[in-house]
Simulated assay, not measured.
Amino acid sequence: MFDFLWALSVDQIAILSAGLSAALGTGAVWLGLTERGPSARRARAILDRREDLRRQLRQPKRRDLTVAGVSIAKRVARRMRLLGGAKAKEAQVKLNRAGVRSRDAVPVYLFLKLAAPFAAGALAALLTYGLDLWALSPNGKLLVSAGAVLGGFAAPDLYLKNAADKRRQKMSRALPDALDLLVICTEAGLNLDSALVRVAREIGANSPDLAEELELTAVELGFLADRRQALQNLEARTGIPSVGALVSTLAQAEKYGTPLAQSLRVLAREMRDERLMKAEEKAARLPATLTVPMVVFILPSLFIVLIGPGILRTIDALTNL
């Protein structure tokens, strides 16, 4: 390459430099004309958004079925005066423990508690009396209808109970790790509010339910007058005994100024030991649990393999006699 450059004359080098400069200038002008800046892209996005909004305003408004159903549920619950009593507070606790945060969750739940028995009973009566689907006796039809009514009454509670139990198990498994992170944050000098926010951010991928509860507790600690009430709300929303111990420790540290990191470290160790004991208990209960499947499924096939040939030979010998 260098030998080729040295072999060129002065005129050839000048011509080559002029051509290269012309090519670079043309490329710069072309890029300047075609490349759009951030302001142009933002202006184009604003125009597109304005056109979308104008198109939505011109379209006829249609009421979503979900919104219509929620409004009906709210109207019925308000007419029946179900939103201001102890049942509404109990329903709010159940929904919080199940992880349902919607504003309209309480009236919808109360409406389902009220309407599900009638709907289930009407469906069962239609299938048994109207269509005669199973050809039952009159007493059987009455029993099926009554069972459907009871099932419809208990279905919302069973659903919330199962959802709350699954959520509680997930949070219980992630709680010791969250306590270890909380110990690290408090030892690093963070206050309780900032430590809860940081721990929630770190465990959000592994346990989003616990992260949501910790973030909500941090928000309540910031605007509630009584900080102990925010911690008690955390215990009420989760329903976990370990969280009750954590709330007691945090409330004691807030009230008396005791060292928080050492108490949390001891509490995290106790929770880990408790989780290990539960795992050992399940492992010890496993042989007794496997006894019934082994007797029902494994032993008959084993007896057939071991005793079957002898029985067949005996039958053949007796038939030859």
Rank of each mutant, 00 (worst) to 15 (best):
V93Q: 08
D316N: 13
Q92T: 13
A230E: 03
L112A: 15
L143K: 04
K94N: 05
L192S: 10
P293E: 06
P176T: 01
V197K: 04
T238Q: 04
L190W: 05
G69D: 07
A28D: 03
I315P: 06
S102L: 13
D226F: 04
L127A: 11
G69E: 08
C185E: 11
F2R: 12
E270I: 03
R36G: 11
A288E: 08
A115E: 03
D48P: 03
E254N: 09
A205K: 15
L110G: 06
E280N: 09
P293Y: 06
S194N: 10
L160Q: 11
E215W: 07
A211D: 04
L8F: 01
S242I: 01
S39Q: 12
N191A: 13
D193K: 14
L143D: 03
A146Q: 06
A23N: 08
V76Y: 10
V10D: 15
E270H: 11
L264I: 05
F2E: 10
L179D: 03
V295M: 00
A317Y: 07
T249L: 13
A268G: 11
T217C: 15
Y159G: 07
M271C: 06
N191C: 08
A253I: 01
L95Q: 02
G244I: 00
T319M: 08
K61E: 14
R201N: 12
L224Y: 14
T314C: 09
L142Y: 04
A279D: 07
L24I: 11
E215P: 00
L210N: 04
W134S: 02
A225Y: 05
E235H: 07
G121N: 04
R58C: 08
L24G: 07
R167M: 06
S242Y: 05
R313C: 01
G257I: 03
L33I: 10
V295W: 01
N320W: 02
D104H: 10
D193V: 15
L196Y: 11
M294D: 00
G147R: 02
M171S: 09
D3S: 07
L127G: 09
R49I: 08
L302G: 03
R237T: 01
V292D: 01
L133I: 11
D316Y: 13
K161M: 10
T34C: 00
G310R: 05
D193P: 10
A154D: 08
A245H: 10
R81G: 15
L312F: 11
P156C: 08
E270T: 09
A245K: 10
A148V: 01
L246A: 11
G151I: 04
A288D: 06
F111V: 04
K170F: 07
A283C: 00
